[in-house]
Design a protein around this nucleic acid. Structure first.
Length: 205
DNA sequence: CGACCGATCGTCT
DNA sequence: GACGATCGGTCGA
């Protein structure tokens, strides 16, 4: 039985194993609170991006540009990648500063503030598409490029643990979505999803 | 259900 | 000048 949500502190993010962190983020609660407008959702799908050695990571080969600079931030900071000029993809930075490890949050199960999510997305009803997929969940939660470079230790945006744990048999590991150009690294089992959860993106592994 | 396509724009080559 | 860690719609089988 989940208890009082407790905000994750820096030590959660400040670890070397980004795959473990991506797995452990399943079941955690992402909260945004802008001007007193609170929304939250349980994380049900994540992907790990393993830094300079990972062809799918924007920091592959040590590449560090204006766009990818926030990937090199301190643990617990935020990297927003704007995809196709319109989608804001929300990443949590892990490991030490200057080590570009990140976890992309790909889907949430809404908990609080569904009415605000509907307002922000313009959707008429709360179907599964509301927070399914990285672009959709950012829009629903009010996340934008403004958060990139910030951190998850304020009251405005953070991730909390209410004690919920998924057992091994409730979690499926697959390759990542939409990274075909990463060649052999596109096959790595770096995506974590909650089995049977209707908010997980429907694409095949 | 799968394949395909247009939207839309900052970043990189 | 081309592309992308996406999405929602259309079209045909």
């Amino acid at each position: 039985m989940p208890g009082n949500p407790k905000k994750l502190d820096r030590s959660f993010y400040d670890r070397k194993d980004v795959l473990r962190i991506a797995r452990e983020l399943l079941g955690k609660i992402l909260v945004t609170q802008w001007d007193g407008v609170r929304s939250s959702g349980r994380i049900v799908e994540t992907e790990a991006y393993a830094g300079e050695q990972d062809r799918a990571c924007h920091a592959f080969g040590g590449r560090r540009t204006t766009r990818s600079d926030d990937l090199y931030g301190a643990p617990g900071s935020v990297y927003i990648y704007i995809c196709y000029g319109m989608h804001h993809l929300f990443n949590v930075i892990t490991n030490k500063k200057d080590i570009p490890h990140a976890v992309l949050i790909r889907a949430l199960e809404p908990l609080e503030g569904v009415e605000h999510m509907l307002n922000r997305t313009g959707k008429p009803v709360a179907d599964y598409s509301l927070t399914k997929g990285p672009g959709n969940l950012s829009r629903a939660m009010g996340i934008s490029k403004l958060q990139s470079g910030g951190n998850l230790f304020s009251e405005e945006i953070y991730i909390a643990d209410d004690g919920l744990r998924y057992k091994k048999e409730q979690v499926i590991v697959t390759k990542r979505i939409g990274v075909e150009s990463a060649r052999e690294d596109a096959e790595l089992p770096y995506r974590f999803i909650v089995k049977g959860n209707p908010y997980v993106s429907a694409k095949k592994s």
